[in-house]
Computed example of a mutant assay.
Amino acid sequence: MEIVDVKEIQARFNEAVDLFWGYWGSGNNRSFYEQCMQNSHGPDGIPRFYVAISEGEMVGTYSLLRNDINSRHDLYPWFACLYVKEEYRGKGIAKNLLQHGVEQAKKLGFKMLYLESNIDGFYERLGWNENGLTYDPFGNHAKIYEINLEE
């Protein structure tokens, strides 16, 4: 398996957009994902979008974002859009994507990395610490997890 920045695989760009949108999007917002991905690699290096490829098939995703559409705009970057196709789960791909994100955030010079989730136990086992709550525009909340990239 390899993890590739979507910007590096332009020939498969639409396939990558469809994978992100297919899991994280809804109805008619594919253009949101497409434009976000087209305009990645800003002045501070983010946002970035990655896909995991196994035997030629895109099997998972993640992104590094300035904000994961939540109320904590003071915190960034955010590890977001972690997804592994169902038939590939249980093979360590999510763990590999998460570790890749940590490494990329370090390379970009960030000192902390954040994510939001209501999954108990998974992120803690991988060294992340729970640190409060964040809210989305629809009134939902999620736990904030953080990891120190300088340790």
Rank of each mutant, 00 (worst) to 15 (best):
S63D: 03
G27T: 02
E55L: 13
E57C: 06
L149A: 06
I93H: 00
G27W: 11
N129V: 14
P43F: 00
L98V: 10
V6I: 09
E34A: 10
I9C: 09
W78V: 07
D68H: 02
Y83M: 03
E34C: 07
Q35P: 00
L97G: 00
L149V: 05
M58C: 04
L97N: 01
E57S: 12
S40G: 11
W78C: 07
I3S: 03
G27A: 08
R30F: 01
L65Q: 05
D136I: 00
E130F: 01
Q35R: 08
L82D: 06
N39K: 13
I147P: 06
Y50E: 03
R48K: 11
I147L: 12
Y23A: 10
Y135H: 15
G25K: 02
F20G: 12
T134Y: 08
E2K: 15
V51G: 02
Q35K: 14
S71T: 08
G90H: 07
N131W: 14
I144M: 03
D68M: 12
T61Q: 02
I9W: 01
K107S: 12
E87L: 02
E55K: 14
N70R: 05
N14G: 15
M37G: 05
N14Y: 15
S26E: 11
L82Y: 05
V4N: 06
K85V: 15
Y83K: 02
I53Q: 09
Q99H: 13
E2I: 12
V102H: 01
N29I: 05
V84I: 06
E86R: 14
E15K: 14
Y50T: 04
S40N: 13
H100R: 01
Y50N: 04
D120L: 14
I9T: 06
R89Y: 09
V17F: 09
E57P: 00
Y83W: 09
F138Q: 10
